[in-house]
Design a protein around this nucleic acid. Structure first.
Ligand SMILES: [Mn+2]
Ligand SMILES: [Mn+2]
Ligand SMILES: [Zn+2]
Ligand SMILES: [Zn+2]
Lengths: 146, 146
DNA sequence: ATGATTATGATAATGAGTTGCAATTCCCTT
DNA sequence: AAGGGAATTGCAACTCATTATCATAATCAT
């Protein structure tokens, strides 16, 4: 059994929930998808694969993933929540291209340290943070110049 | 005439729009409000003051403020857009208390510089960015410990 | 295997924000 | 100052992502 499956099942049994074929299938497809997927995208993908799962169950299951610590919800400003695997995945932040919607991940330990410094100076305890850089990726820049 | 009023009127005449008493009043109340106000909050405030303005007009006017460069929209994760004056205001980022919703502003030039460095390394041109630190403010920490 | 409990899919409801529309206001032209 | 085309308003209806409801189905401890 995969580590992710174990985490989810541990959360499930701890909260008197049940392992269902829908939950198992959503997990499999979610782990096999590009990161930052929306509920709708996941729904269409599974429909295409012949599943008869309902959209409400996709939403419920993605919420369950977040509650279990497997995934996190992201808002990149396009009005739809995106979900990303965070269990056993190194923390990172995002560059988002406004033109082609490409998402580039990066990590910068100096920034992380400075955030803590800012928090301390303001007598603030950080639980989570959001750092998103919006602009134009290299690909799109080239295309625009041509 | 205030600088903000001038900017708005300049945008208005440049786009064949019209100065209306509604727009002037919304501007006055907006500038007189705490920063990071929601459309609904502004609406209630004006209703309380005896105005008969419609909520749709508030939304339309706040959008106009954003298009003119007077204000910007923020999303602090509570499901409602907040609007902030940015004209003649120094750029800053935000600490958001999850418990009391207090918003603390900060600026950190080192972080800004590192963002540019990250962008350059990824061949990316930054137009805007969002840095939000979520957690618990000093006030709430104290209260929680008592 | 049984039954209590939880999950599911279909559908309705929610809530922030937008839009269509008829009535009103603005403001340029005379 | 008056006329009139264009923009704006308030209201209500709409959109769209997400959640709630509910009758039926699946899960799992016994
Ligand atoms: Mn990511
Ligand atoms: Mn601010
Ligand atoms: Zn791009
Ligand atoms: Zn607080």
């Amino acid at each position: 059994m995969m580590k992710e499956e174990e985490l989810l099942k541990s959360h499930i049994s701890k909260h008197n929930l049940k392992v269902t074929k829908e939950r198992s299938l959503v997990l499999r497809v979610f782990l096999d998808s590009e990161p930052h997927i929306t509920a709708e995208e996941l729904y269409r993908k599974m429909k295409n694969d012949g599943s008869s799962i309902g959209l409400a169950t996709i939403y419920r299951t993605l919420n369950l993933f977040c509650e279990s610590g497997l995934a996190e919800q992201r808002q990149f400003g396009d009005g739809q929540a995106r979900y990303e695997l965070v269990y056993n995945v190194k923390h990172h932040d995002h560059l988002i291209c406004k033109q082609c919607s490409r998402i580039i991940e990066f990590e910068n330990q100096e920034i992380e340290a400075l955030q803590e410094k800012v928090a301390k100076k303001n007598n603030f305890k950080i639980f989570s943070h959001k750092l998103e850089l919006y602009g134009i990726c290299g690909n799109c820049s080239e295309k625009n110049d041509q």
